[in-house]
Each structure stands twice: as structure tokens, then as C-alpha cells.
């Protein structure tokens, strides 16, 4: 009900460019950005909390969700009025400048494409060796799995668990969850599982460390390069692409949009 949302906005709604763009981007890039990615401040500090439109979401419930009218900044907690955007626009916090929410065209299609690509690359990466080492007629191969259990043989069991979580479990969980969330939103399935999964991957995001492992692989390659004959395995390349795809898959979905669309699925179901 966008009409009701607009009605509760104060008349003097400001629409100015995103300050972050001004400061971070060079001039040539700023010009390119100002065309497609125009950003606005999302709102005005709420002075009148007795506005009936706000209370529509509050009534009756012990804990009522009012996200349709208000948006809290993720970083500093300041409340803003929600205002619908057009494709390509970004709403930012008035106090700290963080992104509140954005409207992205074809978000679901991009998520689907990226998660399917990611899952394929994940399977390839785990099926083939990353590196091989040859010395004096003997050969050792390194796969992701071997790297994880390396500490197990040295009896550091907690480290093995940590590495398995960082390299195997979390990336797979992230990809599968994103796929399930995309399908849930598209087909409007009951969202209980998708909500739980999205919460988990939002909280556990920092523990997926594929890109850090890649840096480790590069360091090891340089370290061993002088001592022995190194073979770069096929998984090395799929792993590089997997990192790029996972980074893209993490940045494409807008959290606010995903949460509110999952919530809409619950109301629909």
C-alpha cells in the first residue's frame, strides 16, 4: 500500500545526492554514477510517533512489525520513514550515511544465476586438486578437503573444525540458502525456513573465508616455488571464479527487500 506510506511522509522531503559518492568516487566516476545510481536520503527524523499510519502496524500485537512505515539504519539505529524507490535508487541514512535499502532491477534473476553458478563452481572446486607438489619422484596433491583435514592428522581438532567451517560448510550453506530464499520469494512458499536461513547467513557471513584462503594459497605458492616443482590444478581456476561469484552473490540482494518480501510471503501463504 504505497499510497498510505506516501501520505505519512512530511511535506518537506529532501532529495539530495548521496554524500558517499561525492567523497569516495573520482570525478569521472561520479558523473557515470549520477546517471543511473542516483541516491536519495530516505527520510526525516520522526517527530510525530502518534501518526495513525505508524500505529497501523503496531496495533494489537505484543510485538508488531512496522517495517512498512519505518526503517531503522542498520549501523546507527536511527529511524526513517520508508519511501518507495524506483529502480537503481539507493536510500541512505541521514545521520551516518549508511545504505538503508535499495531498489535493484532483476534482483531475483541475478541471485538465481549467481547461486547456480556458485554451486557448480563449488562442486568443481571440491572435485579437483588445487595444487600439486612434485619432489624426488613423489607427488602430493592439495584439495580443499585435504587442507581442512591437515590439522586433524596433527591432532589439532578444533582448528580442523574451524577450517572446515570457513572453507566447506559456510560457503555451501550460503549458496544453498540463497538458492532456497530466491525460490521462496519467487514462488511465495511459506517462508519459515528461508527466514531462518537468511538470519543465519547474515550472522555467519564473516566466517566464510574463501578469499582469505586464496591469499594463503598464493603465499604458499611463492614460498614453495623455489623449493619444489609446483603444479597448478584445475580447481585453482574454478576456485578463483567461485570467490568472484560469491562476492557478487553477497552484494546483489538488498537485505531490506529480501526481508520484506519474505515477510510478504508469510502474509500471502
Amino acid at each position: 500500500m504505497p499510497a498510505a506510506v506516501n501520505a505519512c511522509l512530511p511535506a518537506e522531503f529532501v532529495s539530495v545526492p548521496l554524500p558517499d559518492c561525492d567523497r569516495i568516487l573520482p570525478h569521472w566516476a561520479k558523473r557515470a554514477v549520477s546517471g543511473g545510481l542516483r541516491s536519495i536520503y530516505a527520510g526525516i527524523r520522526i517527530n510525530n510517533l502518534n501518526d495513525p499510519a505508524i500505529h497501523a502496524g503496531l496495533s494489537g500485537n505484543f510485538i508488531g512489525i512496522m517495517t512498512e512505515q519505518l526503517v531503522a539504519c542498520e549501523e546507527c539505529g536511527r529511524l526513517h520513514h520508508y519511501r518507495p524507490l524506483t529502480d537503481g535508487q539507493t536510500a541512505t541514512c541521514r545521520r551516518c550515511g549508511a545504505v538503508l535499502y535499495r531498489q535493484r532491477a532483476h534482483m531475483l534473476e541475478m541471485m538465481l544465476a549467481l547461486t547456480l553458478t556458485g554451486l557448480t563452481l563449488y562442486l568443481l572446486t571440491n572435485a579437483f586438486p588445487l595444487l600439486g607438489l612434485r619432489a624426488q619422484g613423489m607427488q602430493q596433491e592439495l584439495t580443499l578437503w585435504v587442507a581442512c583435514v591437515a590439522f586433524w592428522k596433527q591432532e589439532y581438532y578444533l582448528l580442523t573444525l574451524l577450517m572446515a567451517m570457513n572453507l566447506l560448510i559456510m560457503p555451501l550453506l550460503e549458496l544453498c540458502s540463497m538458492l532456497w530464499i530466491t525460490l521462496t520469494i519467487h514462488f511465495c512458499w511459506p517462508p519459515a525456513l528461508a527466514l531462518t536461513l537468511y538470519r543465519w547467513i547474515r550472522v555467519l557471513k564473516p566466517w566464510a573465508m574463501l578469499e582469505v584462503f586464496m591469499l594463503g594459497v598464493l603465499v604458499a605458492v611463492v614460498k614453495l616455488g623455489d623449493l619444489a616443482f609446483l603444479i597448478v590444478g584445475p580447481a585453482f581456476w574454478s576456485f578463483s571464479f567461485l570467490i568472484v561469484v560469491m562476492a557478487a552473490a553477497a552484494s546483489v540482494p538488498d537485505p531490506h527487500t529480501v526481508w520484506s518480501r519474505l515477510e510478504a510471503c508469510r502474509r500471502h501463504a
Binding site: L131, L133, Q140, L142, V146, A147, C148, A150, F151, K153, Q154, L159, L162, M163, N166, M209, V212, F213, L215, G216, V217, V219, A220, K223, L224
Partner: peptide, 15 residues
């Protein structure tokens, strides 16, 4: 964590 990963890769490869 890169240091831990380097150790893991080295002990897995150099055996």
C-alpha cells in the same frame, strides 16, 4: 587467518 591457512596448506602439501 591467512597465516593459519598457509600453515594448513604447507603441512598438507609437504609430506
Amino acid at each position: 587467518m591467512v597465516d593459519v591457512f598457509v600453515v594448513a596448506i604447507l603441512i598438507a602439501l609437504v609430506q
